[in-house]
Amino acid sequence: MRRPDPAGTLEALSRTFLDSALDCIITMDASGRVQEFNPASERVFGFTRSEAVGKELAELIIPPRLRERHRQGLARYLKTGEGPLIGKLIEIEALRRDGSEIMVALAINATQVNGSPIFTAYLRDITERKRAEETNRRLAAIIESSGDAIISKDLDEILTSWNKEAERLFGYSADEIIGKPITVLVPPDRHNEELGIIERLRQGERVLRYETVYLRKDGTALNVSLAVWPIKDETGNIIGASKI
């Protein structure tokens, strides 16, 4: 009976891992040339494996303004055994075949193979996530600087956001009020009105406008005119409501 070849088995397992990985996996030798370029890398960067292998990594996926820094880092590692990015997770720009740039999360490790270093880079395209984060930052800044009180609550009627104007209008700081039920602002005889808002939004009302009475921290009543709209998650499910 033929005995299995351990080296062949390991190579097959390695190839299966590379081919099925969701993240880009790129290996580079000591000369800075690509030795491996998995299918995820092909999808993200637009090069085929045959096009990428043997090419200098700097010329392939690194933006021109960052190439010299990459080469200097490689030279430093070869001279000292230390590199500024080895073993760290960073976010950095990368270049696609069509010339467009994307943001990637990058981790690099170095191993010795036959006395020579081999570098393996694990990359994940985070462009959409970074765009969403920037959009959220801008929206948060707009809400925080708004001249209107803007608050939000979840499906359990718990307050989840509270801007500066809400602090001024109602007397509660964000730290005091976030995490408390919205009914602390509502007179007892109007609780049912408040509790019915989420249900009305679920039934399809996109924006509710109405006038009611809320309570300040000192207990005084405040006549308010409200616009209420649903907060949805990425799948379109309603997860709360926001008021202005």
Rank of each mutant, 00 (worst) to 15 (best):
R2L: 14
R3F: 10
R3I: 11
D5M: 01
G8I: 07
E11V: 09
A12V: 05
S14V: 13
R15W: 14
D23M: 07
I25D: 08
D29F: 08
P39T: 03
S41D: 06
R43Y: 00
R43I: 00
R43L: 03
V44P: 09
V44S: 00
T48M: 04
E59I: 03
P63Y: 07
P63W: 00
P64N: 08
P64E: 08
R67A: 07
Q72M: 14
K79V: 12
K79I: 13
G81C: 05
G83Y: 10
L85C: 10
L89K: 13
I90Y: 06
L95E: 00
L95N: 00
I102F: 04
I108Q: 09
A110Y: 07
Q112V: 14
V113R: 13
V113P: 08
S116G: 04
I118S: 14
I118E: 09
Y122A: 01
R124K: 05
R124N: 04
D125P: 00
I126M: 03
R131E: 02
E134I: 07
R138I: 10
A141I: 06
A141H: 10
I142M: 11
I142R: 09
G147A: 15
D148E: 15
I150S: 00
L155C: 06
D156V: 04
S161P: 04
W162T: 03
K164W: 00
E165G: 04
E167N: 12
F170G: 01
G171E: 02
D175G: 04
E176D: 06
I178E: 01
G179D: 07
P181Y: 03
I182C: 10
D189K: 10
H191K: 12
E193L: 06
E194R: 02
L195P: 12
G196A: 13
E199H: 11
G204P: 03
E205L: 02
Y210G: 03
T212I: 06
V213I: 10
Y214N: 05
Y214A: 04
K217M: 03
G219A: 14
T220K: 14
V224K: 14
P230N: 09
E234K: 00
N237V: 15
I238N: 02
